[in-house]
Amino acid sequence: MRFPGPPGCIASITVSLTSLNDTMAFWRGVLRPLGFGRIGEWSGCVLWAGEQAQLLLQEADEPSKRLIIMLRAKTRQVVDAIHATAVREGWPVVETPAPKFIAPGYYSCVLAVPGEPSIRITIACAWDGLPERADAALVRIPGADPDVVLGGYLFRPEMQRGGAVIVLHGYASNAAETAGTGRLLAAAGWTALCLSQRGWIGSTGREDQGLRQPDDVLCAAEWLQRETGNARVGVLGFSQGGQVALLAAARDRPFAFIVAYFPCTDLRTWPQQAKANGIEYYLEDFVAPEDIARCSPVSSAARIGAPTLLIHGEEDCIVPIKQSEAMVAANPAIQLFRVPGGEHGLREHHGVVWPTVLAFIDRELEATR
């Protein structure tokens, strides 16, 4: 059998148990429905293998402590079936099957290994791609690189006004999370393309913090123009999506407008300004030093000619409003709508913010007729 997993994945896990024999039925009942099978057995050890991982079980005087292993199921039905087996066999159930806000479409149950309560097994499923929607077409669009295909939802209005909007999600999100915005734009008469950025659910490639993602937006704009006949295309982005929208606006292609909600505009100053933990480590590990300026919209702000509106909460601790203020300082033509008391996400302020955003979009798309 081929050694499992692509480079960088956790290919194998070793679990120490007091007794292999006493837990054999448990492992068989959990692992077989997930596609694992035994490929090796010798004194005190059993090796199970699936398509993407190996699990080595070994007897030891000291069992593994506080160990949590998550195993991927293909469907919710598999999660439910394994849980039902655990209930029938009397195996310890720590958490019954339920959705959780961990990953898109996430659904799991948690079991404890019989006789080894500190070893827990999570059986989970999550989306592999964007789910179908009744109110939008699921689309696939070539990205800026040969290995990148962008997934998304295309919302078509009942009464077409002759303009289109690309909607970009923030970090760790996807097009399904922005579908509500696409629906609102379509209700206002505008075609909306809610796009999953490269590296996130529905799209291929690797997330790159704004390095090549803006070029994907240019590809999406060209596709949208060909597909719908709309020559006037604007971009609306949230958080990292706002950052990418601003970077795309500084490229050569003209956009009708840019709306950027709470965008990061200067990666160099962001870690010192934010109160959130881990930002400096993320940038250190995923953004090369020579790419910091290229991924920072403030570096190319003067090149943005499209009408641009920034939306930012004054109490944003993740991406402080100083990031948007720096963008305005670099290009005074950019407008900033400040939201008193607003935090990152501005979910509680949608009723205040959206009329301003929609009026801006209406004005700029109508102006380019």
Rank of each mutant, 00 (worst) to 15 (best):
P6G: 01
V15W: 03
L20F: 13
T23A: 14
F26G: 03
P33S: 14
G35P: 01
G37P: 01
G40R: 13
L57T: 09
Q58W: 02
P63D: 11
I68W: 11
I68T: 15
R72Y: 09
A73F: 14
Q77D: 15
V94P: 03
E95F: 08
I102Q: 02
P104A: 09
Y106P: 01
I123R: 03
A124Y: 05
W127A: 14
W127R: 10
A137K: 06
D147E: 12
D147I: 03
V148G: 00
L150D: 02
G152V: 04
I166H: 01
L168R: 01
H169Q: 06
T178L: 08
T181P: 00
R183K: 11
A186F: 02
A186N: 12
A188M: 04
G189Y: 07
G189S: 13
A192F: 05
C194Q: 13
L195C: 14
G199Y: 11
G202L: 13
Q209L: 15
L211S: 15
E222A: 15
Q225C: 12
R226V: 04
A231S: 13
V233A: 11
V233S: 03
F238D: 05
S239H: 06
A249N: 01
A250N: 04
I258V: 15
N277Q: 11
N277D: 08
S296L: 04
P297R: 13
A302L: 08
I304T: 08
A306F: 06
P307A: 11
T308F: 04
Q323Y: 09
S324T: 12
E325P: 08
E325W: 10
V328W: 05
P332T: 08
V339M: 07
P340Y: 00
P340Q: 02
G341T: 05
G342A: 09
R347T: 14
E348H: 10
V353G: 02
V357T: 07
L358M: 13
F360L: 07
R369H: 13
